Simulated assay, not measured.
Amino acid sequence: MQKLSIQDLHVLLVEPSDTQSKIIKTLLLKENVQTVDIVKTVADAKSAVTAHGADVVVSAMYLSDGSGLEVLKYIKEDDNLASIPFMLVSSETRIKKLDEFKQAGVAAILPKPFEPIHLSRALNASLQLINTDELELDLFDVAEVRVLVVDDSRLARNHIRRVLEGMGLSQLMEAENGAHALTLLKENEFDLVVTDYNMPEMDGRELSEFIRFNPATTHIPIIMVTSESADSAHMANIQQTGVNALCDKPFESDEVKAMLASLLGSGE
């Protein structure tokens, strides 16, 4: 399949403010995006993306009839739309509010106002999700790599699955928390574990400790996916449990690919 470039992108912009929509559209055009459709509400966004599709959806957080989170979940819960990258543009700084978008599979979060460099990075991150390349490994056939994905958010698991499948990994199992993951680890063999940090019943730290200190699983590489700051106290503790790599939410496809190549062996 032919790869898309930035100028090929059809962007659906969801923004209630005429002024803000003009500013964002102008910045998109300067980045060489050729097609930008604008809607103002959740209802219109759902109608537009269902009727005409889009390569990327860029949305404000707060809309007159709801929030951008409703648009994001609508996209991610529809198998026909779920692969569309979603970018949030918001002045919101509350971690809990932003976490909701990260858990639902947002591709990028842009501050409002944002600099052109922020938009450029977000568009490139979206292109990485659209233009997937199979991972090349020396030590494994990528199609044979067995991966356990652990996250209490179904939407987050779906997002991680799509990113990994886009790289050619097809043998994936999912667990909704650490306790469920333990059951699967006892019953199956895995080459890699990708786990969230914050989960009920058993969190990512406890799961990582079990994996690392159990003789049957100690060899399995672990990627921790988290929305917490890498320099937080929690993350410092996590690194002491033997996690091989920390990955931010939302994470970029190229970043994940580099981690996998390093952990599993690269043909490059």
Rank of each mutant, 00 (worst) to 15 (best):
E165W: 07
K102E: 09
R157Y: 06
L172V: 07
A107L: 02
I109V: 04
F210Y: 15
A156R: 05
E115G: 08
A181C: 06
E136M: 13
V145K: 04
S120R: 15
F140S: 03
Q128H: 14
V147S: 06
M202F: 06
I109R: 07
D138T: 09
N177W: 08
Q171W: 09
G166F: 14
M202C: 11
S126N: 11
L192I: 00
V149H: 05
D138I: 08
P116V: 02
V147A: 06
P200Q: 08
G178Q: 03
S120E: 14
G166W: 08
I117P: 07
A122Y: 02
I160Y: 10
A156N: 14
M167D: 06
S153W: 07
D133C: 10
I109F: 03
A125V: 07
S126K: 07
E176A: 12
A104K: 06
I130K: 13
M167H: 00
A107E: 11
S208V: 09
D191R: 04
L119H: 02
N124H: 12
I160L: 10
V150L: 04
E165V: 06
L182Q: 13
R121F: 12
P111Q: 12
D191V: 01
N131K: 04
E176V: 08
A143V: 05
T183I: 03
E174Y: 09
F101M: 05
I117K: 15
E136Q: 08
T183R: 05
N158G: 09
A181I: 05
L169T: 01
L129S: 14
E206T: 13
M202R: 12
A108D: 15
N124Q: 12
R154G: 04
Q103H: 13
H159M: 11
P200A: 03
V150D: 06
E209A: 15
R157D: 01
D152P: 01
M173E: 15
P111A: 00
F114D: 03
P200T: 02
L182E: 10
L123R: 09
T195S: 06
E174I: 06
G166N: 07
E206S: 15
R162N: 02
F114K: 10
Q103R: 14
V106M: 03
L110V: 01
V149K: 02
G166Q: 04
F114R: 02
V106F: 10
L192D: 00
Q128C: 07
N188Y: 11
V149L: 01
N188Q: 14
G105Q: 11
H159D: 02
A156C: 01
F190P: 03
V147F: 11
M173R: 05
L169Q: 01
A122P: 01
A143M: 04
E174A: 13
F210M: 12
H180N: 13
P113N: 06
L127M: 10
L184D: 00
P111K: 15
R162L: 06
L127E: 07
L192N: 02
P116N: 00
D141P: 05
E100D: 08
L182N: 02
E136C: 09
A179H: 15
T195P: 01
M173D: 15
L184E: 00
V194N: 06
S126Y: 13
